[in-house]
C-alpha cells in the first residue's frame, strides 16, 4: 500500500492477513481463475460484436423485409398526370421530326401550320 507508513498496526496486520488468504487459494480455484483469464484474453483479438455476421444478418434481414413491405404497401409508382416520362423521351429521340418539333418554342404557330396543311390536303 502506498501509504503504509500512515497505517496503524491493526490495519497493517489486517492487510497482511487478507493478502495471505488471497495467495493461499486452493489449486482448483487458481485453475479456474487461469481459465477465466485465458477466456478473457481471447476477447481482445475478437472483432467487435457489432461486426459479427451473426449479429448483422438478422438486422439486414429485418431491414430488407421492411423495404419490401413498404413497397408492397404503397403499390406501383404512379406518374403524376401531365408529366413526361422516360418512355416518351425514347419516342421523341426515335422520331427525328418529332424531336425537332419539341424543340420549337412557338407551338401555336406549328399547330396553325399543321391545320392549314390538313385543309390544303382536304381541298385538293
Amino acid at each position: 500500500m502506498s501509504n503504509e507508513q500512515q497505517q496503524t498496526p491493526f490495519e497493517r496486520r489486517a492487510g497482511e492477513m487478507l493478502r495471505d488468504s488471497a495467495d493461499s487459494l486452493d489449486a482448483a480455484t487458481r485453475s479456474r481463475l487461469t481459465q477465466a483469464r485465458h477466456a478473457a484474453l481471447e476477447g481482445i483479438s475478437a472483432r467487435p460484436a457489432w461486426l459479427d455476421f451473426r449479429v448483422l444478418a438478422p438486422g439486414g434481414a429485418v431491414a430488407a423485409a421492411a423495404v419490401v413491405a413498404v413497397l408492397m404497401w404503397t403499390g406501383p409508382m404512379q406518374r403524376p398526370a401531365g408529366e413526361t416520362g422516360a418512355f416518351d423521351d425514347i419516342e421523341l429521340l426515335a422520331d427525328a421530326d418529332a424531336y425537332e418539333i419539341s424543340q420549337e418554342t412557338d407551338l401555336d404557330f406549328i399547330e396553325c401550320a399543321a391545320a392549314m396543311g390538313e385543309q390544303d390536303v382536304a381541298g385538293t
Partner: peptide, 22 residues
C-alpha cells in the same frame, strides 16, 4: 497491436486475479 496488449493484460490479470477473487 494485439499481441503486446494481450501479453500486458495477461500479466495484469494474473497479478490481480487472486485478490479480486478473495
Amino acid at each position: 497491436t494485439v499481441e503486446p496488449t494481450a501479453h500486458a493484460l495477461n500479466t495484469f490479470l494474473a497479478s490481480v486475479e487472486r485478490r479480486a477473487y478473495r
